[in-house]
């Protein structure tokens, strides 16, 4: 390729020009220490490198089939789930700065979000609607994958991972539901955990461990908070990483062997 023939600024250049030279070379050196490709890669070679050399992009292969890019192939549902999760993490972290997981304080903090926090209402709205949307979109994604037969060999395990992610999304939403500590939240959790209590043998124990008590109270609020902000998001993030990695390892998006369409 042509790039091979261009004369380069060899490493021998390093140290030339003294302090001024060092400072002058610094912006470029810093850029190159971070990125291995120019801001807008031009050749196919560079574009491929741009994908391979970037931590966030390299979950993609350098090339994508035109089929995978068509909206009707996936309806974008998996990506939308990811984006909603990102919105939820960001808005959730902001909300954490103003939230106290205690029965005495939690509800007042909700009121404070309305009046005392800049953009507080917006953040809470965004977090709540994104959470509802994520549950819906994740299940829509599941339907899409099944109806396109994308769960079949060799992608079986990734389907199992996806199912676990869907259940975890439900748990995340459920644990977050209690945090405002209003009537809606409280009784939804009373009713929801009562359903868990129906499980044979382990049901009552499960409920007790989940709530940290026989009834929904301060312990339950603290437990749900820790699960909601630390445990479940961490596990979900790892699971998403695994899910994406498997897509590539299993050969990209499912596609027919022959051109059947």
């Amino acid at each position: 390729m042509s790039v091979d023939k261009v004369k380069l600024p060899a490493d021998a250049d390093a140290g030339k020009g003294g302090l001024i030279g060092t400072l002058k070379a610094m912006p470029k050196r810093v850029y190159h220490s971070v990125f291995r490709f120019r801001p807008l890669p031009k050749t196919h070679m560079e574009r491929s490198q741009a994908v391979a050399a970037n931590f966030f992009l390299h979950i993609h292969s350098a090339k994508t089939t035109e089929r995978a890019l068509k909206f009707r192939t996936t309806l974008g549902l998996g990506l939308i789930s990811l984006y909603l999760f990102i919105i939820l993490v960001v808005s959730g972290v902001f909300l954490m700065f103003y939230y106290v997981p205690s029965p005495d304080a939690a509800y007042d903090r909700m009121l404070d979000l309305r009046g005392a926090v800049f953009f507080g209402t917006f953040l809470r709205n965004l977090h709540r609607w994104s959470a509802h949307a994520m549950v819906a979109v994740v299940f829509a994604h599941m339907v899409r994958v099944f109806l396109t037969g994308a769960h079949k060999a060799p992608r079986e395990f990734n389907w199992v991972v996806g199912t676990a992610l869907a259940l975890m999304t439900l748990l995340l939403s459920f644990t977050g539901y209690l945090l405002p500590w209003d009537q809606l939240a409280y009784w939804a959790i009373v009713v929801g955990t009562a359903i868990a209590g129906y499980a044979p043998v382990i049901g009552e124990d499960l409920r007790f461990i989940l709530l940290g008590d026989y009834t929904v109270g301060g312990e339950a609020l603290l437990r749900f908070y820790v699960l909601h902000v630390v445990v479940l998001p961490t596990v979900l993030t790892l699971g998403i990483g695994l899910h994406f990695w498997r897509i590539r390892k299993d050969g990209g998006l499912a596609r027919p062997d022959t051109d059947e369409e």
Binding site: L84, I87, P103, Y107, M110, L111, T121, F122, R124, N125, L126, H127, R128, W129, S130, H132, A133, V135, L170, S173, F174, Y177, P180, W181, D182, Q183, L184, A185, Y186, W187, A188, V190, V191, G192, I195, T215, V216, G217
Partner: peptide
């Protein structure tokens, strides 16, 4: 999502009260 968040407020009812269950009490929609 931003537009939805701007125009629709998330529900917030009275503070939780273990003595007064609402009628009907419902779990989250899912």
């Amino acid at each position: 999502l931003s537009l939805i968040a701007l125009y629709f407020d998330a529900p917030l009812e009275e503070p939780a009260n273990a003595l007064h269950p609402p009628n009907p009490a419902k779990a989250p929609w899912y």
